[in-house]
């Protein structure tokens, strides 16, 4: 699984590519946490455009990153979710902790966001 991380100084952009399962989640987690701890961004965008498969490991990854980012007041956004990834995220109620955007155009669905 390939993970690229960029920042514009305020926002951290994480581009995920590959299959997000238990086998791959640990490596992705370490990369994000290392970068986030060093830069303390205001906003974090996880881009799922390159994710071909995702199971509940993806939910765990998002929940864990939310807890970490929250400690320094960073907000979280999930972008370019496939219909399947969106279904998995919604199953876990992640729209309550992050802004979820589907597809390439990024239709917002944060009506229920706190």
């Amino acid at each position: 699984m390939h993970t690229a991380i960029e920042t514009d100084g305020k926002t951290m952009f994480v581009y995920l590519e590959g299959e997000l399962d238990h086998h791959n989640a640990g490596g992705v987690r370490d990369k994000i946490d290392e970068f986030a701890a060093a830069f303390c961004p205001e906003h974090a965008v996880l881009d799922f455009g390159g994710v071909g498969f995702m199971d509940s490991s993806g939910i765990g990854l998002v929940m864990g990153r939310y807890k970490l980012l929250q400690t320094f007041g960073c907000t979280l956004e999930l972008r370019n979710l496939s219909p399947h990834a969106y279904k998995v995220m919604r199953l876990a109620g992640l729209e309550k902790i992050a802004v979820l955007k589907k597809g390439k155009e990024g239709r917002e669905d944060n009506a229920s966001a706190k």
């Binding site: 989640a25 640990g26 987690r29 199971d55 509940s56 490991s57 939910i59 765990g60 990854l61 929940m63 864990g64 998995v88 199953l91 876990a92």
Partner: peptide
């Protein structure tokens, strides 16, 4: 604990 969400069976069920 850690990063496991505890949703494995929930995902299978749904």
């Amino acid at each position: 604990g850690g990063d496991r969400a505890g949703l494995g069976f929930s995902v299978m069920e749904s």
